[in-house]
């Protein structure tokens, strides 16, 4: 089944960390630490440019890969604008369509949304956007915390193959892939992060 395949490949759609490939496995680095920093800086500028007042923005990372990136973006936005920015994290496991079906349950992480999203522009941050199902689940989750002024999506990598009408507003890098490949955001040997195509 198509949905089973997408659940098993592609780091963005794999809710359980156990499905992530072995970090020692070979793969081509498509974004190194410096590349990630440049992408984060550009995305941060674009977010401010599009939304204006930083106090109406909430940066929300999607567990687990999106959370470190959301923290980098949050830090950058604060640096550039000189104003504090709201930061949150969402675990969307309990909103996913492929977890609502049957199969071994991934253990969810705790969601941290210490604010109401009413009237805010929420920027959802993920490492890789693939089928769009994670973002769909995240939009449902955000709306459980109030009615936001708008929802936008930022991702380090857009690898295509969307199965839902979901767009990425701020993208670090577009990487053409085949469905059989996987794109993995992970800590690198040097203590930084990297994105690898396998």
């Amino acid at each position: 089944m198509k949905s089973d395949q997408t659940a098993a490949s592609g780091s963005d759609e794999s809710a359980p960390d156990t499905s992530r490939p072995d970090p020692d496995a070979t793969g081509r680095v498509v974004l190194d630490g410096a590349g990630i920093q440049r992408a984060v800086a550009r995305i941060s500028h674009e977010i401010l440019e599009r939304n204006g007042d930083p106090e109406t923005i909430a940066i929300v990372g999607i567990e687990s890969g999106g959370v470190p990136i959301s923290e980098m973006i949050g830090g950058r936005v604060r640096e550039i604008s000189g104003a504090p920015v709201l930061l949150g994290s969402l675990d969307v496991t309990l909103y996913r369509d492929d977890v609502i079906g049957r199969g071994k349950r991934p253990v969810p992480h705790r969601t941290r949304m210490p604010f109401s999203v009413r009237g805010l522009r929420v920027v959802l941050v993920d490492d890789v956007v693939f089928t769009g199902r994670t973002i769909r689940a995240a939009m449902d989750a955000v709306i459980d915390f109030g009615r936001p002024e708008g929802i936008q999506v930022a991702a380090l990598v857009d690898r295509g193959h969307r199965e839902l009408p979901i767009q990425v507003d701020f993208v670090g890098k577009n990487i053409p892939t085949s469905r059989a490949e996987s794109v993995v955001f992970r800590p690198s040997a040097g203590g930084d992060y990297e994105v690898v195509l396998q």
Binding site: T93, Y95, R105, R110, T111, F145, G146
Partner: peptide, 25 residues
């Protein structure tokens, strides 16, 4: 340990204004 870790995520749901997630719909 798995049950206790999952319970930690569940505890947060009870603290929300809308205390409901769709997972067992």
């Amino acid at each position: 340990g798995q049950i206790l870790d999952a319970a930690d995520a569940m505890l947060e749901i009870s603290q929300r204004e809308i205390k409901r997630v769709p997972t067992l719909r």
